[in-house]
Design a protein around this nucleic acid. Structure first.
Lengths: 199, 199
DNA sequence: CTTATCTTGGAATAGTCGTTCCAAGATAAG
DNA sequence: CTTATCTTGGAACGACTATTCCAAGATAAG
């Protein structure tokens, strides 16, 4: 008997992700969301609730669509260190060129935003960090099995280091950093992880 | 003949720095600044101009008071690697404990904020990055002279890596990261820089 | 103590914020 | 085609935003 939605909530949420990602959620008003999605305030609030819940939903969507596939690839990839190198090469490329250039990472950006205090949002941030760390650790363990990294490398600490490095890349890219500089920094860290041959 | 200011602009700016640093400049209104400093809107605008200029002034003040002394110490310190280790130990301690715990770094926070597009602000961000890189490079060069780092380490790329690492620490600390995790990550990167002994 | 000049408190501006509300429209089952 | 139920457009809400303005107050030189 009831009426049915006149729009697709999934594509609307994707549009919201783009908006929050590019401009920043704090400086994006509901009016901007209304204009970008084309739906009315009523539909917006009926579907997603207020701005905080919308932001959390957008963050979850970003994690599913952007982060999770990359993390999964990192875990699956059996090449060890080359998998990690490839991850950072694609990361820097995505952050500095193409349609998302200078957008940074929505998760990284949210770390300094106002929503960081919202429990629902904070849990997503920590979940993202845990997932990133876990993927890095898996790749490092594979690299260790292949004898690619120095024997004394702690996979846990190494994973944290690479995660911090990724955050640094995301942050600086939003301020317009050069891809070459970022890649050189990444390469130096990874070189320090590799198994050193006897002199 | 004219009247003189009834307040000290220097201490007022310091109060603004604390406000922007802790809460974030974007979510801090002029009303908050008025209340925190105790001066009126008239005096505020007459002394510092609008919010953008105030934010730039606060950022410069932060750089002078917080960053510059630390960078200078890094350049002066002749111990090499221990100077870098000490830098990160103090950084993590400052970010995770004490009165500024969980505040992050004002410069890092500004990277994702709305003011990042303001030319005056962007120049300060890039100047900060250049100063941080330069200080790291100087310390790495000292470490190289002392034979503390692996011979093939590029000081330029190494400095960029350490700068990115510092940004990562700043970012994660604002989300409540554990000091132990951050320190473990830092130590792993620095271990990779050290001169490896023959097996 | 007058006077020129700056500062100060506080009201007022126009605009935007997130959110709520309701009548009008759309839907599909009976 | 009636009817119950949801959706939709859009007006309206009070609270906030940064900024401007001006009369009243403070200052120190002459």
């Amino acid at each position: 008997m009831p009426d049915v939605k006149h729009f697709d909530p999934d594509v609307a949420l994707d549009q919201v992700v783009r908006l929050f990602w590019e401009r920043g959620a704090d400086v994006t008003g509901i009016a901007d969301v209304v204009q970008a999605t084309g739906l009315s305030r009523s539909s917006l609030y009926a579907t997603f609730g207020g701005k905080e819940r919308l932001q959390a939903a957008a963050l979850r969507r970003y994690l599913e669509r952007q982060s999770r596939p990359v993390f999964a690839a990192l875990v699956t990839d059996q090449r060890g260190l080359p998998a990690i190198t490839g991850f950072f090469q694609r990361l820097v490329a995505a952050r500095c060129t193409g349609e998302h250039a200078r957008w940074g990472c929505l998760v990284t950006n949210t770390h300094t935003g106002a929503a960081r205090e919202v429990p629902e949002v904070r849990e997503i941030l920590n979940a993202h960090h845990a997932a990133l760390r876990s993927a890095m650790r898996a790749a490092l363990l594979t690299a260790a099995e292949l004898g690619q990294v120095r024997p004394d490398l702690d996979p846990e600490a190494g994973a944290e280091a690479l995660a911090l490095l990724a955050y640094g890349v995301n942050l600086r890219s939003r301020a317009g950093a050069e891809a070459a500089d970022l890649l050189a920094g990444v390469r130096t860290v990874l070189d320090g992880f590799t198994h050193t041959k006897e002199k």
